[in-house]
Structures are given as structure tokens and as C-alpha cells.
């Protein structure tokens, strides 16, 4: 999961740093993620995991770090697995 998220970030986040050097808990906004780029990350994650984020998760905080994104995606995927 985290590896796929890193691929999405590499493609869409336009971060001024190397994704490989970013820790799972690092704050991406402090690293330079912009609001508009975070929307592209959101759409990229939806494609990569074939999910749709509910409105409540369509906010900046959901994409703050790799681990927060992973939790969010798991939270969406989990109910479907039942």
C-alpha cells in the first residue's frame, strides 16, 4: 500500500524533494505539497486503488502524510471486503 502511494506521489505531488527520502509520517505540506497538487494526489490514489473518497475525506488533512493516506484508503477499502 505505502509503495503504491509513493508511486502516486512521485507522479502527482510535484514535491521539491525525492519521494524515496520522505518518511511515512513526514508532513507533506511542510515539504511543499500545494493544495492543487494534493487534489491531483487524491485523484491519483482513487485511480490506483479503484476507490472513491467520501466527501468527509475530501480535505487537506487526509493527504498530510503517507501513513495518513494509507489509513484513509484502508478505511474505504475495508468495508467493501466484508
Amino acid at each position: 500500500m505505502e509503495e503504491t502511494i509513493r508511486q502516486v506521489l512521485a507522479e502527482y505531488a510535484q514535491l521539491p524533494v525525492d519521494i524515496a527520502a520522505v518518511g511515512d509520517d513526514d508532513d507533506l505540506y511542510i515539504l511543499g505539497l500545494t493544495s492543487h497538487a494534493s487534489v491531483n494526489v487524491m485523484l491519483g490514489l482513487e485511480d490506483a486503488f479503484d476507490v472513491e473518497f467520501p466527501d468527509a475525506l475530501l480535505r487537506k488533512g487526509t493527504f498530510r502524510s503517507i501513513s495518513v493516506m494509507a489509513d484513509a484508503v484502508r478505511g474505504i477499502v475495508a468495508p467493501k471486503a466484508d
Binding site: S38, L43, F53, D55, G61
Partner: peptide
């Protein structure tokens, strides 16, 4: 659209 809902939420949050 959906991307817009996120931009709007960001705009309010910030």
C-alpha cells in the same frame, strides 16, 4: 466537481 469539493474544504480550513 469532486476535486473542487476538496479545494473548497482546503480554502475554508486554511
Amino acid at each position: 466537481g469532486r476535486a473542487g469539493r476538496m479545494l473548497a474544504a482546503n480554502q475554508r480550513e486554511m
